[in-house]
Design a protein around this nucleic acid. Structure first.
Lengths: 241, 241
DNA sequence: CGTCGATATTTATACGACAATAGTCGAATG
DNA sequence: CATTCGACTATTGTCGTATAAATATCGACG
């Protein structure tokens, strides 16, 4: 009946990943798409997916619908489900971001991350200096103090670093900037593996303090410059510009 | 049976919007959520949605799953579907963006748009100057020429403007920047209603030409400055900084 | 009064059936 | 021989129902 396509497909391993079958299928299919498994092979039909993975067609359909919502695929009757070009994918979706990381943990991806950060974060710092409220400042200062504590090995410096940058994004009071929390977190988490390896940095707490000081002093231009220095350093480290 | 909640819900109007029932439901529910209809009211159960809209529960489930994929809601057994805080929404999703626009076409939203653009586009122009290829340059020049033609009323100057900015985003050769095509397009489309109203601008073709020249001349810094001027003008027009 | 269990509610999963749609291919016709 | 129209078919779209799992609520009991 269904042509024997039980070749290299993921074994009937029922979705162990997510919290339910649908999320498991979503994860499996999403990773397969981002990995490029269906670049030279047609995306299977719903019936085939259901059969090869040992789930019902309902689960399959819901997973495919979620992939559609994330822009990875589109479905039309009779034509089947087709993988969309990567340009149509919603890269800021946390799932897509995770799958992308698992695919290629490359320097190129890291450079793209930081090319984005060098645009976003200085402006975010400037906005934070203009619109941040005392609670935001407290969060920023908190991240900074945890970074200092991390210098002494008391806390995780990476998590403190992330908290610092995320606090600034939130302090910008612009919902679009807040969207970059996941991207920046991911970038920092993956960045640490490289930057720590390339150079014994970490002692940039002073730079971070300069950003915080400028923000609290309501100095947008100063905050922008100080933040640019932080990320510019990272970019030069990984060989950009 | 189901408590009489047929009050102000959207009438049984079967999804006329999308290309099928599921997309119609997605659009209806998404717009309702973004509009804030369920801020002070619990999100209905799947059975209620299916009943009030006259569709099957399968259609409802698939629509809810797509909303989940976009971050608007989360569902747990027995607890029902709950609307997520706006900070969890994927604002860069084209659907969410559209619904957001339909909700509040406010100056505040326009300012948020352009606060994002002032961060993204100058860097995109700089990247385009470094990594753009002849085909990209041709697209940028094409948009510029269409803008000039638009000056004479030959073409739509807005669409030409959009094409110009989108071409630069694509020329950055960074997939994250390419993601902003929809945001920038939307921002420009809505911006025109305000900026044209506030001031008889439009004669900024010279500024755009300066950006294009710098990019083609492989001058990243010049491109960045020139692009900053374009968007800075818009920001001052709408009263920011 | 507190803790534990029964119960009910809601999503999660499953299966089967039919409808709608749109490629494909063949036949009829000019 | 070419062209157009129609039947066929594969695939998603929609529906209804049934069962399972999870968990909030409430009542009973210690």
């Amino acid at each position: 009946m269904t042509t024997d396509t039980t070749d290299v497909e993921t074994p009937p391993a029922i979705g162990i990943i997510g919290r339910n079958l649908t999320h498991g299928m979503l994860d499996t299919l999403g990773r397969a798409i981002v990995t490029g498994r269906y670049e030279h092979r047609p995306f299977p039909t719903e019936a085939e997916i259901a059969k090869t993975h040992g789930v019902s067609r309902s689960v399959t359909r819901e997973a495919v619908k979620m992939l559609t919502a994330k822009g990875l695929v589109s479905a039309r009757p009779r034509q089947g489900t087709i993988v969309q070009p990567a340009s149509a994918w919603n890269l800021f979706d946390t799932d897509v971001l995770r799958w992308t990381l698992e695919r290629k943990f490359s320097v190129e991806l890291l450079r793209h991350f930081n090319q984005l950060r060098v645009a976003i974060e200085p402006e975010a710092a400037a906005l934070a200096a203009r619109f941040g409220d005392p609670a935001d400042f407290a969060a920023i200062r908190g991240g900074l103090e945890r970074m200092e504590a991390g210098e002494a090995g008391l806390t995780d410096p990476l998590e403190a670093d992330i908290a610092f940058h995320v606090a600034i994004l939130r302090a910008s009071k612009n919902p679009f900037y807040a969207q970059f929390q996941s991207v920046v977190s991911t970038a920092l988490r993956t960045s640490i593996r490289f930057t720590n390896r390339i150079k014994g940095r970490s002692a940039n707490v002073a730079d971070h303090a300069a950003v915080a000081d400028a923000i609290v002093a309501r100095d947008p231009a100063g905050a922008r410059v100080a933040m640019t220095r932080i990320i510019g350093d990272v970019l030069t480290l990984i060989g950009d510009e």
